[in-house]
Amino acid sequence: MIRLPLGFYVEKGVDWLTNNLDGFFGGIKYAIESIINGFEFVYVSVPFVIMLILIAVLAYFTAGKRTAIFAVFGCLLIKSIELWQMTMKTFALVTTATLIALIIGLPLGIWMSRSDRLNKVMRPILDFMQTMPAFVYLIPAVYFFDLGPVPGAVATIIFAMPPIVRLTSLGIRQVPSDVIEASRAFGATPKQMLFKVQIPLAMPTILAGLNQTIMLSLSMVVISAMIGSGGLGDVVLKGISQMKIGDGFEGGLAVVILAMILDRVTQSIGKPKNLSGGRK
């Protein structure tokens, strides 16, 4: 059996890209870095107490009383184990990755819902992006963007984008055909149909996609600490490499708390509000 030098070609290709498109990658790196730094600056410079209140209010109005109480205790716990800054750093990375995934993923999903051909082309690509072991993205990301938070964010975007693309497309395709027919019968243009009928009706599905994208970016952010993205991933990584079980556990716990708050809040957006207590 002939050994196909697939890895070799990939290496060559990546080499070529780094040599010839250096300026391009430099630009992207600069842009992403600015966004991450911007978010981080905001999150870190807002005093803890104010941030706590903001989170509690947001949780209360989206997900209800229980989540708000949980969020407050969770944040206090993170603060008391002295991981608040690290958490905010991770949160900035997640925010950036999710934002960029949304900016690319939403239009792509809408386009996929309207073109069967693009749908056919994109499905294997999305499968690839999602199932390729996440670590594999780290290597080319480092090649193109050096070490630091930017390659981490890029790897995160690639890994976390498929759900929002898929579910946007799915949501729009699942809008009942009789409603589509009715709006055609009343003379809606394709644009009116999209913004007045399809997107509003697909919104719950699109939001489910957003929720998954956020969760995936959070899980990837920890892995990307291996290439120096910093934040909570760093804490966990140090715990592992130095066999400090306690530190590792604390870092992991902070990730879990952040994930739970983000999950509950994003899951509740767009659902009927229930302020009197937890969800039924």
Partner: peptide, 17 residues
């Protein structure tokens, strides 16, 4: 479609949102 013809459907086809 906008001005001359109105249509009513079997399953109502109202916009649920």
């Amino acid at each position: 479609r906008r001005k001359k013809i109105g249509m009513v459907f079997q399953n109502f086809a109202l916009l649920p949102h």
